[in-house]
């Protein structure tokens, strides 16, 4: 069989983005990005095990402007992936597959991810101020 360049389907560039497809691709993107957060978690625990001098490196990095920017991105992506992951778990049981339900749960999921991120940073600020 001769191999020829065939047109591929689906043509991403001719699709009009819908809420459902955009939320789905961001579930993947946040998952891939969160891998860097897992690497940071390993560094954080390793430096903690190595002693106070090494732990200071993690502390220095995480409380730098880059560290805070990454923490902001990681926290939002984590809550996004968590909220949409719960949505997926409902789908796995066969619930919420109608068009109306997928849009409703999608909007709810975005609100939940924003709310959880805001709540977590609010708590962090509270801890910071009460110390």
């Amino acid at each position: 069989m001769a191999l020829r360049e065939r047109p591929l389907s689906p043509h991403l560039q001719v699709y009009r983005p819908q809420l459902t497809s955009v939320l789905s691709i961001f579930h993947r993107l946040t998952g891939v990005f969160l891998t860097s957060g897992a690497a940071m978690l390993v560094c954080w625990l390793l430096t903690a095990a190595a002693g106070p001098d090494y732990y200071a490196w993690s502390e220095w990095f995480l409380t730098s402007w880059l560290g805070y920017a990454l923490l902001a991105a990681w926290s939002y992506c984590l809550f996004y992936h968590l909220s949409n992951g719960i949505r997926h778990l409902f789908w796995d049981t066969g619930l919420g597959f109608s068009l109306k339900a997928t849009y409703a749960s999608g909007i709810l999921m975005v609100i939940a991810s924003l709310g959880l991120t805001g709540l977590s940073w609010g708590l962090g600020l509270l801890f910071y101020c009460t110390r």
Binding site: A48, G51, P52, Y55, A56, E59, L62, T63, L71, S75, L78, F79, L82, G85, I86, H88, L89, S120, W121, L123, G124, L125, F127, Y128, R131
Partner: peptide
């Protein structure tokens, strides 16, 4: 693992915020 990670993630973020953001010492 997803089901297990739902409560664990919430615990983890709350802990991280408590430890890191508040600038806790190694001790």
């Amino acid at each position: 693992t997803a089901i297990l990670l739902v409560p664990l993630t919430l615990w983890f973020v709350a802990s991280i915020w408590w430890i890191v953001v508040s600038g806790a010492s190694h001790h």
